[in-house]
Design a protein around this nucleic acid. Structure first.
Lengths: 196, 196
DNA sequence: ATGAAAAACTAATAAGCGTTAGTTTTGTAC
DNA sequence: GTACAAAACTAACGCTTATTAGTTTTTCAT
């Protein structure tokens, strides 16, 4: 009967994960039922289990796909030789780009990770912690090279991360604010400040 | 038998709401059961209903208590005559102060509001939207008065709000970073930028 | 066309949920 | 101490949940 539509260039499993990301973002992980997801996919709930291991697997896939993408990007950034400011600039722009192309997944990874079960929860958290501390290292280097003000590195990193992670709020204003305007203004504000 | 301990200078209902905020923050609204809350309070689940209307009422109380506090503060800020920069400075510091003294409640209001039911959901969202647009007005005035760079006002507001709302991440580093260091660095970074 | 594998279906399970009903205990004012 | 109200208790309801079992349909290579 009803057949699961595979997403372009992806398995049926990928299609389910994508729909799940949308629902998890919209309603939250716990508030999304498998029946609801099944309906979105166009199938009865038990049929989903021909493709996935269970509800928790869906969350794991979403969270780690996002985490890995960011980790990979940071690694490439570290390997590229350029100024710290330029690296921070690119890092902020990457976050914005990701928010544009994978809004649901990013939101879920940022807000629903607490429903992961161990050992995935621990893995996810330590991966995040590592990302954070590598950014701190970057800022410390910038301070040392006198590219950056003598600001507290942790605070600087947390401020940047908070600001970019909070970009979800921007989704509501997408049509009013083009992506490049957002990018340039945000980078400028975070790096150069607001005061004239 | 077990008796609900009233919080200092507060009703038993307040004590329940406080415990609920802690659990909702830690596990999420949907993932917190009334039985779990009851255990934290030291009572059987049905006993809670002698003091509260239901689970959803708890979320409402938390969210609107927070929203009202912020709305009130912004109003006071608007009425005080001083420079826009000074106002923004104070606004950022207020957010940080609130994060310190009402972490659970703030977190819940920021992350669990989507589980509010109408008409509370609509009320909450419009209250937030209003807060946002009043901040935009403030930034616009700052640009007009040439206190601020010619930055996109919406982007500036969203960046600030995102940064301060994301301060939850800071809770993990509380012992390493004193509140005043955080405040000063964050205000400085958001207003003056990171680059030397 | 045929047979096997993939993927859908229906039915049912056990567990957990918020909440209600009805009863008993506790605290308080006279 | 007695009576009244507040607040606790136990038991249970009806509903939803994720998931499994077992069966039927669809897909596809030969």
């Amino acid at each position: 009967m009803a057949k699961i539509k595979a997403v372009a260039n992806g398995s049926k499993k990928d299609a389910i994960v994508k729909k799940a990301a949308g629902l998890f973002r919209q309603k939250g992980f716990k508030a999304t039922s498998m029946r609801e997801l099944a309906e979105k996919v166009g199938v009865e709930a038990p049929s989903l289990y021909n493709h996935i291991g269970g509800k928790s697997e869906l969350l794991q896939l979403i969270c780690f796909q996002v985490a890995n993408e960011f980790t990979l990007h940071l690694q490439q950034l570290e390997e590229t030789p350029q100024t710290v400011v330029k690296k921070l600039d690119q890092l902020i722009r990457f976050h914005i780009k990701m928010m544009l192309q994978s809004y649901d997944e990013l939101y879920v990874a940022n807000h629903e990770w607490k429903h992961l079960e161990d050992p995935y929860l621990s893995n996810f958290l330590s991966q995040r912690k590592l990302y954070e501390s590598r950014m701190v290292q970057l800022v410390k280097e910038g301070v040392k090279q006198k590219e950056l003000k003598n600001i507290h590195p942790y605070v600087a990193v947390l401020t940047i991360l908070s600001a970019v992670r909070g970009l979800e709020f921007w989704q509501r204003h997408k049509k009013d604010i083009p992506a490049d305007v957002l990018e340039n203004n945000m980078v400028n504000q975070l790096l150069n400040g607001l005061i004239k």
